[in-house]
């Protein structure tokens, strides 16, 4: 896979930005070119947060994109706003928690990661975002789990290193719960 252009969107506080950062670090560990570009507007306060992550084997041009290979949405607002931003034939991931309206497009691949429910069941809501990442990486293995782990060691301060095994477990849990809704 040459280039993956990804958008992750959800509520501020869901760990959207840090999930993107962990993926970006894993990309660095895998020797890829990476860009991590956050939305940093005032809309982040209590509203939606989103981040663009681009992983590529080539030099990355524009970090500003309108269409994405993959979009991961973690709330209704983000789904409403970004479903149309998936390239035809691209991928949309969502967590059904709190959703009233579901994806409607029939020209894209759609996957469900019930991460909120699973995290609540396991009592590990803090690693909810890593579970989402695990689900995504199961379908789009752009980086391997070893590099995610290496990236975590590199990006987290030492005092947080004891939590890394919990994160890796969450990654595997995420991979085990992702469901295919439709593939085109």
């Amino acid at each position: 896979m040459k280039t993956e252009e990804l958008l992750i969107a959800g509520f501020g506080g869901q760990g959207v930005l840090s999930m993107g950062k962990i993926l970006a670090y894993a990309g660095v560990m895998q020797g890829k070119e990476v860009v991590w570009m956050p939305s940093y507007g005032p809309e982040m306060r209590g509203g939606t947060a989103n981040v663009t992550v681009i992983l590529s084997d080539e030099q990355i041009d524009s970090p500003v994109l309108m269409k994405f290979d993959t979009v991961i949405v973690l709330n209704q607002q983000s789904l409403d706003k970004f479903e149309q931003a998936v390239k035809p034939g691209g991928r949309l991931f969502y967590d059904s928690n709190g959703l009233q309206n579901f994806p409607t497009r029939n020209d894209i691949n759609i996957y469900h990661i019930p991460a909120t429910a699973k995290a609540a069941e396991l009592g590990t809501t803090k690693v909810f975002n890593i579970m989402v990442l695990g689900g995504y990486l199961k379908i789009v293995p752009i980086v391997n789990v070893e590099n995610v782990e290496k990236g975590l060691y590199k990006s987290l301060p030492e005092r947080a290193h004891k939590l890394i095994p919990l994160n890796i477990e969450a990654l595997h849990n995420g991979a085990s719960i992702v469901e295919v809704i439709q593939e085109v």
């Binding site: 970006a24 860009v35 991590w36 570009m37 990355i60 970090p63």
Partner: peptide, 10 residues
């Protein structure tokens, strides 16, 4: 600019 300042790269 704010974009170069806020984005992360290697």
């Amino acid at each position: 600019d704010g974009a170069i300042g806020q984005m992360m790269e290697k």
